[in-house]
Design a protein around this nucleic acid. Structure first.
Lengths: 347, 347
DNA sequence: TAGGTCATGAGGCACGTACCTCATGAGCAG
DNA sequence: CTGCTCATGAGGTACGTGCCTCATGACCTA
């Protein structure tokens, strides 16, 4: 008598009863099978809405009797961030398997649209339900994404989006906001103004363009005392970036700060440490990787903005799981937050 | 013939076969039921390890035929952060329900150990599998946590830990690191040194003590030019904090910064804005709530350190789900990161 | 030896959904 | 009317695990 009364969750049986149709018909509607008149389908839909039916994900996956098959396609090469993204995928693989998600990872040459497109073209719905890709903005990739969607392979974009395609979801940070944040910190670090150099990877990369735009806009709006130098392109390369920074330090003895919005941070740290001026110059970089960690610890880098690869992978997996439920539902993901790291809150 | 070969996931049947025992025995071992000799249990454990069996969470919850029952106990009162924590719980309720987790939230008077203990005592394993509490460090609470654990109600602590008890997991940030981070930012904001006032809620709260310790240590180690004023206790109250800040501003025309490591931020912002010196003083506060958001936007606050209530709730739910599997497994959660927010990366 | 306890096995039903086959009846064209 | 298509219903099995009952045989104790 002390029982707590619990509302039983609605099941497909309840839907059938409420709609006045059979279980088989409800099943046909729920799983998009043919052979149901529009009028009947609507009755079912109305019943679902009326009683608030939610399909039981666990039971659904169990009954399907097969794991969800996901393929991550991640750029290869020297880019440490992409490596950490791949690591984050591996780290989640076991947990994902326990939730019936079978993960496969492929690395393709960075900035090689043809390779990415070929990799996408090789996927068929028989062995891949969903592809998660780091997209580069090239026509071949756009075509491959749409083709995969038509074949029945859902596509989600990670880190770098591909708007205007059939991709179901984008998972990544707001890079304009990241640039603004960098400016806001740099401005406060230099209360008496000064010169700040900006280094980018490439001005053909959407995320780098966004960061630069945000950085510039926020500096102009709030910190008139700061003069911007650059941007200089380092092509995300260690040695090239090292040369650029070394040159900057030599030519600008009064340099107040450096914002590296691309990769190549190993070179940045090396040049700073070699100059003996590490610590006297405020430095902001992107992505928490081995070189930036080292830089934070040594004091060469003050702040690292990070897009939390682990969180992105978690969000991607959660979204993929939802995707498995229905074909026509809108999938949303928790927004990815920009991580801000100093030496003192290194995880 | 084009089939991709998939390793079938191991099931309890496979474990039984590998161990040379019956399904019933495997079940007894897995679910901690009595009536199995130690030697037999070990054979089963060995088989599980050997074939890498992982219990299917979905099927397990389905077979249990009942939802996981979770009770959040969250302090009530004027504390905006606790309100946002409760909001985060509500926001996840639907999603949780779809994963067979039934959430109940209770609010108890803040800093009232007896009330929290009573609330815990009222829980019995029949209608609550797991309690998630914001613990305060009082003997009555400690006793209640251990009693609940003995009764079969698992307890997890949120935001504020209760070490030395039977609590299964703590979910929250590293408050010493948070204090260090605040110091590290403040030090860089004031490159020529200055005076920084510290306001705490209460020096009897573990998290406040930790933040203060971290702040102090990092200032002393790295920023000798900064003089610390306080800490002054504002008891997390709006009006008291407002009075304190107003007084500080009046008496210290040269004040360089304020670090409020407790709540009462509405008062902080009001006093700063009333003084007309907002923007000239570097201000760091905790928790992204309505008043701190306002402060960031108006420029009264420079940086807010946040412990990401939504992420904490997500982690708690994930951990609870794992907890449902076995009684004697070690549950781990993803670490909660300290969020750092400026006006420019407000979410 | 009789009676008891205890470890283990065998088997079945249940959870909610997916997916299959087969039957039935309505509607329609010729 | 005959023969066809098509919407729908009825009912089954399966997924992997939890939980229940009952049977069996080993071992101990009086």
């Amino acid at each position: 008598m002390n029982e707590i009364e619990v509302k039983r969750r609605a099941t497909v049986h309840d839907v059938a009863r409420a709609a006045g149709v059979s279980l088989a018909t409800v099943d046909r509607v729920l799983n998009g099978r043919a052979g149901v008149r529009a009028a009947t389908a609507e009755k079912v839909a109305a019943a679902i809405a009326a009683i608030g039916f939610q399909r039981d994900l666990s039971a659904s996956l169990l009954a399907r009797g097969r794991d969800l098959r996901l393929t991550f396609i991640i750029p290869d090469g020297s880019n440490e961030f992409m490596a950490s993204l791949a690591d984050a995928v591996s780290a989640r693989a076991d947990q994902a398997l326990a939730e019936r998600m079978h993960i496969q990872t492929r690395r393709v040459r960075a900035l090689d649209g043809a390779a990415l497109a070929a990799s996408l073209d090789a996927l068929n719905p028989h062995d891949c339900d969903c592809a998660i890709i780091v997209a580069s903005q090239e026509p071949a990739v756009v075509a491959a994404v749409d083709a995969a969607s038509r074949r029945g392979v859902a596509v989600m974009t990670l880190v770098s989006d591909l708007p205007g395609t059939q991709r179901r979801l984008f998972i990544g940070i707001d890079n304009v906001a990241a640039g603004r944040t960098a400016a806001s910190l740099m401005g406060r670090f230099l209360p008496h103004g000064g010169t700040v150099a900006v280094i980018a990877g490439s001005l053909h990369l959407a995320d780098h363009i966004d960061r630069l735009a945000g950085f510039r806009a926020a500096l102009e709006a709030e910190f008139a005392g700061i003069t911007l130098l650059g941007p200089i392109e380092g092509h995300d390369e260690r040695s090239e970036t090292e040369a650029i920074v070394g040159d900057l330090l030599k030519r600008h003895p009064d340099l107040g700060g450096i914002y590296n919005l691309g990769a190549g941070n190993a070179g940045l740290v090396a040049a700073l440490e070699a100059s003996g001026r590490g610590g006297a110059i405020r430095v902001i970089a992107h992505e928490l990787t081995e070189p930036t960690r080292r830089g934070l610890k040594s004091g060469a880098i003050d702040v690292v903005l990070d897009q939390n690869p682990d969180g992105e992978i978690r969000a991607a997996l959660a979204a993929a799981r939802t995707l498995a439920l229905g074909d026509n539902r809108i999938v949303v993901a928790d927004p990815i937050e920009i991580g801000i790291f100093l030496r003192d809150n290194l995880r």
